[in-house]
Design a binder for these strands. Structure first.
Lengths: 125, 125
DNA sequence: CTTGCATAACTAATTATTTCGTTGTATATT
DNA sequence: AATATACAACGAAATAATTAGTTATGCAAG
């Protein structure tokens, strides 16, 4: 999957939040200083060329939708990261952050609970 | 922490692997088609300006060292990612990937083992 | 010493990304 | 119909990143 550039990612984050939107809706969700209308419009069109969004036309105006979901993109992005920084091992990554105390005890307990459920579920089949 | 660009990251990965190296050593570790010597030299100097590497001079030639470790950088990078894609919750991220089956049962069992140890260790204090 | 080679530093050229002004057109308003 | 408004499309300009040529210098070999 193509990588999003900085500006593209910012707009995708807004679209993922909004689910859909006209350029003017996207623009509203920018913090000050807001970019020019045309800047947003251009980048949305680039995102469309790259296959990240599509649009529905209402006469001459376009309502844009994400085609790639936030989950899909994050999955692909994290995979690359795990591959590059943790020799493709989720385990290495997670245990690194557990040891680094980037994950709280409470979070770890939650994670263990979920994993137990998942392990059981996957072992049944 | 500044983000690494594509070319910069490639060189950092090599330096992290080598621990230290002259430009020519870095160059050797590129796959074909290798970039020009000067391309590598320029980017290493940019990395130095950004504070990612430093050097030890042997007369006129420089041996470069990472100043930011791979761990440090990956920590900062993943934090940004978790913040942007999982509303700053490691738990959300990990359980998403567990449910997606991106983490194998074997890996989950390992992770749970490590977390149990970590939880105990951190609860003692 | 002179020539050749290796290297860092500098700089120019190229390519990618971001930003936004301009244009043309459809639609709404008077 | 004439004018104003809103928008997508286009394109130019600005900025960032990448690539590599050129230059200057030190060192080694003859």
């Amino acid at each position: 999957m193509r990588e999003l550039t900085r500006a593209e990612e910012q707009i995708m984050q807004i679209l993922w939040k909004l689910k859909k939107g006209f350029v003017k809706d996207i623009l509203e969700h920018f913090d000050e200083p807001k970019p020019a209308y045309n800047t947003v419009s251009t980048i949305v069109r680039i995102l469309q060329d790259k296959g990240f969004v599509t649009h529905k036309a209402y006469g001459r105006t376009h309502e844009y939708y994400p085609v790639i979901s936030k989950s899909e993109y994050s999955k692909s992005h994290l995979k690359t990261f795990v591959n590059d920084y943790f020799s493709n091992s989720f385990e290495k990554m997670v245990s690194f952050f557990a040891k680094e105390k980037s994950i709280s005890v409470k979070e770890m307990e939650e994670i263990m609970k979920i994993m137990e459920t998942e392990v059981k579920k996957q072992k049944i089949r």
